[in-house]
Computed example of a mutant assay.
Amino acid sequence: MTALLRTLALALGCLPLAAPTAHAQANDFPAKPITIIVGYPAGGGPDIGARMLGEKLAARMGQPIIVENRPGVSGMMGASAVARAPADGYTLLFAPNTFLIAPHVLPKSANVKLDVLEDFVPVVAPSKGAMMLVAHPSLGVHNAKELVALLKKQPGLAYATPGSGSPMHIAGELFKKSAGVDMLHVPYKGVAPAIADVLGGHVKITYASIGVVAQHIAAGRLVALGMAEKERSPLMPELPTLAEQGYPNTATGAWYGVFAPKGTPQAVVEKLNREFNAVLRLPDTAAKLKQQWEVPLGGSPDDLARMAKAEYDNYGKIVKEFNISAD
């Protein structure tokens, strides 16, 4: 009996050690540089956002933040690198919400062996932008209702997107269904050539993130027709959503998320979340995000988890309904 009691005492004595160990990990974190992987080329929106936030995070955490670009396979190459990294908080993924669309639209030949919900731990959603419907001025329309009226008379007008399976492609298909109109999808190899052809009037309609087209709208080279969002954007509050104009179920959304490899200690995730949120509350951060046509978001890891799950499920249904696939 004495031996049994001694064994039980030793076992019970070990139990409280788990929590202090986790907290010790968080207290000591970070003890070396943190790498943020971006699955897109340098100079693009994800890269700019990651570098700006990384610089401010480094100042708070006392360690360098290294941003590494690993473009390819619709961002999945970078995501795969993070999923395979040690689950210690020193390797993070900075990704747009297209991260949650890619698995639904990529062909099997892409050979992406990744579960975007199960292979990662959500950290924080730093910011959001806005998706909008725009047209060339020569089309003669000034809002979504006028576009629909024109499409009723001239069905099959073309709309440009950065590629098949892109959020812009999905937005176009949702609008076609909601408005009961027909438009011809013209996919390009990226945002730049799609916008260039719309600016040139070769294709008259496109969807784009607000940051890509804002300067052209201000200069009168493009006309803003409506936001493809659930609510108006503070970045352009005068522009109504497509739903406000009578076309529901047309919202797509554009936001960024930070993710860590599955198995990253909760205490480390929580510390990263606190530090990101502290950076997002800085007035200078909000000002710099506004320059990129983004607004601070923030919130808890659970907030991002709910957003990611809802987005993944929603896009899965849409892609299946419209039989959408990537180029």
Score class of each variant (00 low, 15 high):
Pro155Gly: 03
Ser166Trp: 14
Gln245Trp: 04
Gly253Arg: 01
Gly13Asp: 05
Gly13Asn: 05
Ile101Tyr: 13
Ala83Phe: 08
Gly246Pro: 13
Gly253Asn: 05
Pro240Phe: 05
Ala278Pro: 05
Thr206Asp: 06
Pro30Thr: 02
Cys14Tyr: 00
Ala50Asp: 01
Val258Asp: 06
Asp303Ala: 15
Arg221Gln: 15
Lys145Gln: 14
Leu100Ser: 13
Pro107Cys: 08
Ala192Tyr: 15
Leu53Thr: 09
Ile170Ala: 07
Leu10Ile: 13
Leu225Ala: 01
Lys189Ile: 03
Thr98Trp: 13
Pro122Ser: 10
Ile195Pro: 03
Pro193Trp: 11
Ala158Ser: 15
Val116Arg: 09
Tyr159Ser: 03
Val198Gln: 09
Met52Leu: 01
Ser127Gln: 10
Gly226Cys: 08
Ala286Lys: 14
Gly72Tyr: 09
Ala26Glu: 07
Ala224Cys: 08
Ser164Thr: 13
Ala287His: 11
His216Gly: 07
Leu199Tyr: 09
Glu68Leu: 14
Asn249His: 15
Ser178Lys: 02
Lys108Leu: 15
Leu199Pro: 12
Ala42Gln: 10
Leu117Thr: 04
Gly298Asn: 07
Leu117Gln: 04
Ser233Gln: 03
Ile48Tyr: 08
Gln292Lys: 15
Met1Lys: 12
Trp255Asn: 12
Ala194Pro: 08
Phe276Gln: 05
Gly49Leu: 00
Pro261Met: 01
Lys108Arg: 15
Asp313Ala: 15
Ala83Asn: 06
Glu238Leu: 09
Gly89Thr: 11
Ser109Asp: 13
Pro41Gln: 01
Lys320Val: 04
Ser127Asp: 11
Phe99Ile: 04
Ser166Lys: 11
Lys32Ala: 15
Val121Lys: 14
Ala158Leu: 06
Phe276Met: 06
Leu117Ala: 07
Lys189Pro: 02
Arg70Asn: 03
Arg232Asp: 12
Trp255Gln: 09
Ser74Gln: 11
Ala260Trp: 00
Val213Phe: 14
Gly200Met: 06
Pro96Asn: 03
Glu321Ser: 09
Thr250Phe: 03
Ser233Asp: 03
Gly140His: 01
Pro155Val: 01
Glu55Asn: 10
Gly190Cys: 12
Ala130Pro: 06
Asn314Val: 11
Ala9Gln: 12
Lys320Thr: 11
His202Phe: 06
Asn249Tyr: 08
Ala58Arg: 02
Pro33Leu: 02
Glu294Asp: 05
Glu173Cys: 09
Ile195Tyr: 01
Gly43Ser: 00
Leu157Gln: 04
Gly211His: 11
Pro167Trp: 02
Asp284Cys: 00
Glu146Val: 09
Pro167Cys: 03
Lys309Tyr: 10
Thr250Leu: 07
Thr285Lys: 04
Ile48Gly: 10
Glu68Arg: 15
Arg84Gln: 14
Ala42Val: 00
Gly54Glu: 00
Trp293Phe: 15
Arg281Ser: 05
Val279Gln: 01
